[in-house]
Design a protein around this nucleic acid. Sequence first.
DNA 1: CAAGATTGACGAATCAATCTTT
DNA 2: AAAGATTGATTCGTCAATCTTG
Lengths: 160, 160
Amino acid sequence: MAAEHEPRWLTEAELRTWRALSLVLARLPVALGSQLQRESGLSFLEYYALAALSDSPDRRMRMSQLAFLTNAELSRVSHLVGRLERRHLVRREPDPTDGRYTLAVMTEEGYRQLVEAAPGHVETVRRLVFDPLAAEDQQALERAACKVVARLDTDAAGAG
Amino acid sequence: MAAEHEPRWLTEAELRTWRALSLVLARLPVALGSQLQRESGLSFLEYYALAALSDSPDRRMRMSQLAFLTNAELSRVSHLVGRLERRHLVRREPDPTDGRYTLAVMTEEGYRQLVEAAPGHVETVRRLVFDPLAAEDQQALERAACKVVARLDTDAAGAG
DNA sequence: CAAGATTGACGAATCAATCTTT
DNA sequence: AAAGATTGATTCGTCAATCTTG
């Protein structure tokens, strides 16, 4: 797999783009996580796990589907749900139709905390991402992000 | 600080953009880190710390400057350099001109490992980011990223 | 005492190994 | 045996407290 020939180094323009993107990758998740933690006591992933559950029928979902929707590994979600369970925001039930599955079920308290956290989080996303972007910036960003995600998908499939 | 009025929820288009961006934020750093770890035994941050040192005169730098250049907290860099020191990729020296500063100094072995890691990393950045982007996508991405970073800067300054 | 840096405790993510149900 | 899920060990990042130098 390792290329033995001289690699194609980045051009000046590519390096500029990469530096700017790296800054976003490093700092945007931290900024969003800080706001959530500070104002709602939730981590970024906890918020999106609760959000996924709240959008699901009966506010419940299989662990594996929750992992898929939050782009996290199943093991990570299992630890996460364990912590949320200790805080009574989620509880676990075996799937009655097939005992191999575990259902994560959002509690009333979990729903309440999500509803309380949502406005502040959305405001922060808007302030940090959408407010500084003109409409055409936003469109272009979406196109670029989708292309990168598509490549990540094919790459992951190829690596096995 | 918390807005009591109804928040401005995201529009359909904004939600699409945000989902695409979230995927990139979640998966691109993981993909880059995996490649580095697998092929070179370095984490993403370790790589960029070594890269920063290699670009500095005498391949040495104050801890605080290294933290600034890698967008990491000083405490994180201190732990990181401690680990790199145990692996003999970096060593620490007090700054002879002012004993309050500590200089992180790249070793020959550290430089060797960086040089060995660089081609694979650059290839991966190219494959995952630049290959799927047309020239105008790349330009637009850079513009958008810079605007978000600028907002992150002003936001951080405002929060204190 | 102020700035730079380190330390230790704690919380969270990853990986491999294991367990359970079908 | 295979798929879903859990567990435990390890590692890394964060936070608060501390140390050191000027």
